[in-house]
């Protein structure tokens, strides 16, 4: 079977399973909103401070939410041993990984889409004029998060305390992505917003490097 077709079948299965309960999206979106509200209590930012610290806050909230949200991606396949069915399916390990990664990317993008207006209102930052460019950065960031997080979700399923372990594996790996995304978002919230090419390139490079690594190592991810 064609790898792209197999991946799209896995993707549809993931989306259908999620739409039946909406557990993952409900908890993630609520978590991310709580984090944003807590930051506001912790720092009580003025309008100028909100612009200064907003990008960092936004990305910390997203990375924390992502590192929690990606946990069930492979862990739920173990609950009913459906991981064996996936392994037996006549498709490459990479297409299983790709389907799950795309599903996670979709869920992250939905989370971002809900978080942005909440963030803009609570912190009095006007995002509308830069929404197109901001979307590019948010998607590149979500892609890097989904690529690495899905790999480590598979790695962590085999470990004890996997819910605690995944953030430990994924957050330090994401440091370059975090730096680039925060700096790029920062440039967009300035008085004269620009899409910083350098940081955009770092984001793209991060995504490409880890996607390639995930592709090359995918055969080892699902083995027993």
């Amino acid at each position: 079977m064609d790898a792209a077709r197999a991946a799209s079948i896995i993707l549809r299965k993931e989306v259908r399973a999620e739409m039946r309960t909406r557990e993952l999206l409900q908890t993630t979106v609520t978590f991310v909103v709580i984090v944003v509200v807590l930051f506001s209590f912790a720092f009580e930012p003025s309008a100028a401070e909100a612009r200064r610290y907003g990008p960092g806050l936004l990305w910390i909230a997203l990375l924390f939410a992502g590192s929690l949200m990606l946990n069930p991606s492979f862990a739920k396949e173990q609950a009913n041993d459906t991981i064996y069915a996936l392994r037996m399916a006549p498709v490459s390990a990479f297409s299983i990984y790709l389907g799950k990664m795309l599903a996670n990317l979709l869920f992250l993008a939905i989370t971002e889409a809900i978080l942005l207006p909440v963030f803009a209102v609570l912190y009095n930052v006007s995002l509308w004029p830069v929404i197109g460019r901001l979307a590019i950065i948010l998607l590149l960031g979500a892609f890097g998060l989904a690529v690495t997080g899905t790999v480590f979700s598979a790695v962590a399923t085999q470990a004890r305390m996997r819910e605690m372990l995944l953030p430990l594996l994924v957050l330090p790996i994401l440091i370059p992505l975090m730096i680039a995304a925060v700096e790029a978002t920062d440039e967009l919230l300035e008085a004269s917003p620009v899409l910083d090419r350098t940081w955009l390139m770092v984001l793209v490079a991060f995504d490409i490097i880890y996607f390639a690594a995930a592709w090359m190592l995918s055969d080892y991810l699902l083995e027993e």
Binding site: F152, V155, Q158, A159, I173, P176, T198, A205, A213, L217
Partner: peptide, 22 residues
């Protein structure tokens, strides 16, 4: 599992370097 994580750490060094350097 640790081999996969180790390889991910190492391939990330250039991009870690680049982003922190800038």
């Amino acid at each position: 599992a640790s081999a996969i994580f180790g390889i991910f750490i190492f391939v990330g060094v250039p991009i870690d370097y680049l982003s922190i350097r800038i």
